[in-house]
């Protein structure tokens, strides 16, 4: 079959079913847009959780009057505990400075003396930032007589652990729901469009068209709608995300805009949606052929 025949038929279908083509393209664009927004929110929420987790550390408050030699030994010992990444000494004076930074007031103005203890700030490797593992490390730390108290953001970590699991579940569920509703919606819209061409398909079959001859222009149409719809979606998504980027990016959190690779994947998804939607919808009319 001459390729120009397919191209002419494809153009004819576009011309004679303008409103149906428009509807399918819009539905594909909306589906891809929805998926793109969801994935962006999902990736950024996971990133936000990671940021919060990164800030988890242990403060080991020291008794007063520790000699420098003992302090060095203690730091070195703590470094050997499994999961400890590094240990930083915060002296009483440094603690006072941090207080002043955080609360905007000199501690000596509040009290006549500096009640803040010296401490060791203990950073952990990411995989050790769970309540169970931190508790084990805490158990090791309290054995040292130089250490008076060990604290970490236990409640925050509890909330984080609980919510990160829910978030992963929510993200996965939403991903499945959005993907399947997109396929269902697009499939139905394309099916309606092909249904309007039912008579044409029937006549083509009766006069000796092969399956491929009937199918190819419809597949081209599905491809075109999918491609156009997803390109539209990607453009709208970029505009939308640029706004979010400027609004929600600050020193602590860098809002991630999807890169080119991700946008290409979205276009491929939308194009496949249109193409497969056409192919699957046509099967009904070509089944007994």
């Amino acid at each position: 079959m001459n390729p120009s025949y397919y191209f002419k038929e494809f153009l004819r279908y576009l011309k004679t079913a303008k409103s149906a083509v428009f509807s399918s393209t819009v539905v594909i664009a909306l589906s891809v847009l929805l998926l793109g927004i969801f994935l962006t929110i999902s990736i950024n929420s996971v990133k936000l959780l990671k940021l919060i987790r990164d800030k988890v550390e242990i403060d080991a408050y020291l008794n007063d009057g520790i000699q420098p030699g003992a302090l060095s030994r203690l730091s070195a010992d703590i470094k050997t505990i499994g999961g400890v990444k590094n240990v930083t000494y915060i002296s009483k004076d440094e603690a006072a400075k941090i207080f002043a930074q955080d609360f905007g007031q000199d501690i000596l103005e509040v009290f006549d003396y500096n009640p803040l203890p010296a401490s060791l700030k203990i950073n952990l490797y990411d995989e050790y930032k769970t309540i169970d593992r931190i508790e084990k490390i805490k158990g090791e730390l309290v054995k040292y007589k130089e250490i008076n108290d060990v604290v970490y953001a236990q409640k925050n970590l509890e909330i984080l652990e609980r919510n990160s699991q829910s978030l992963v579940f929510l993200n996965l569920s939403l991903f499945v729901i959005i993907t399947f509703s997109s396929i269902f919606l697009v499939g139905n819209t394309i099916r309606l469009m092909i249904q309007s061409k039912k008579d044409t398909i029937e006549i083509m079959k009766l006069i000796g068209s092969t399956k491929e001859t009937i199918r190819t222009p419809f597949i081209m149409e599905g491809f075109f709608q999918g491609f156009l719809g997803s390109i539209l979606a990607v453009i709208i998504l970029q505009i939308f995300l640029s706004y979010f980027y400027s609004t929600y990016t600050n020193n602590d959190f860098n809002f991630t805009i999807m890169d080119t690779k991700f946008l290409i994947l979205l276009v491929i998804f939308g194009t496949l949606l249109g193409t497969l939607g056409s192919a699957i919808s046509l099967r009904k009319y070509l089944r007994l052929y």
Partner: peptide, 8 residues
């Protein structure tokens, strides 16, 4: 696949 050929 022979059916279209017959119909022609």
């Amino acid at each position: 696949p022979e059916i279209p050929l017959l119909r022609r």
